[in-house]
Design a protein around this nucleic acid. Structure first.
Length: 198
DNA sequence: AACGGCAGCAACCGCCTTTCG
DNA sequence: ACGAAAGGCGGTTGCTGCCGT
């Protein structure tokens, strides 16, 4: 599509889309041996036809050994909502308070689960044209909360009262149906890396 | 059993900020 | 002090699998 007519010999084609197992292994191996560095040159040196950004994202969101995926606990849910009430869509900031969780995962979680339930709560409370949740982006949603100046100690319901009601009804899966069944586990990858690398 | 719609997740895109020369 | 490059972040999109009809 927007592929340039390759007029430079440095112009190697850039791969996009899902990462392959081989690419993952290359990246893991390279970082294990050389550590993280300048991502653009890392991608080149490792022989990956990916942008530095893509490598970084893959590493941070998926390949890091300390990354935890799936099974967001009820405690984590509450924390996410609490911090979101405080900071809005500052996902990376929120993620820092959830060890092993990535901003991307929290963002997805918020959008797919929590936001949905907020909508339901809104609907349950009755139509209110002023709220306009549909057009409310998540950032606007943060306006529903006592954001900014309110510190956590003054933290009162981070969510609509209806949300609390939903909580008691148990709308959130305490063990979300996230499953990695269809992919190799990180343990597999890391053990492979160990076999390959050292 | 097949089809259509929906939900969830991974990855990409573009903008903003930070760092380095 | 200025400009360029890289990193970081949030928003959005596309793909895949699941569920209901």
């Amino acid at each position: 599509m927007d592929k340039k007519p390759c007029n430079s010999q440095e112009e190697v084609e850039v791969r996009k889309g899902p990462w392959t197992m081989e690419e993952d292994l290359i990246l893991i191996n390279y970082i294990a041996n050389h550590g993280e560095g300048v991502w653009n040159s890392l991608a080149r040196s490792a022989g990956l036809k990916r942008t530095g950004k893509s490598c970084r994202l893959r590493w941070l969101n998926y390949l890091r050994p300390d990354v935890r995926r799936g099974n967001i606990t009820a405690e984590e849910q509450l924390l996410i909502m609490e911090l979101h009430a405080k900071w809005g869509n500052r996902w990376s900031k929120i993620a820092k308070h959830l060890p092993g969780r990535t901003d991307n995962e929290i963002k997805n979680y918020w959008r797919t689960r929590i936001q949905k339930h907020i909508k339901q709560a809104e609907a349950f409370a009755g139509p209110n044209p002023d709220h306009g949740l549909d057009q409310a982006s998540t950032s606007q949603m943060s306006g529903c909360y006592p954001t900014g100046t309110h510190a956590v100690e003054s933290y009162s319901p981070p969510i609509h009262p209806n949300m609390e009601m939903l909580f008691h009804q148990g709308p959130f899966p305490t063990a979300p149906t996230v499953s990695n069944d269809n992919m190799w586990s990180m343990e597999d990858l890391w053990s492979m890396q160990l076999l390959n690398g050292e």
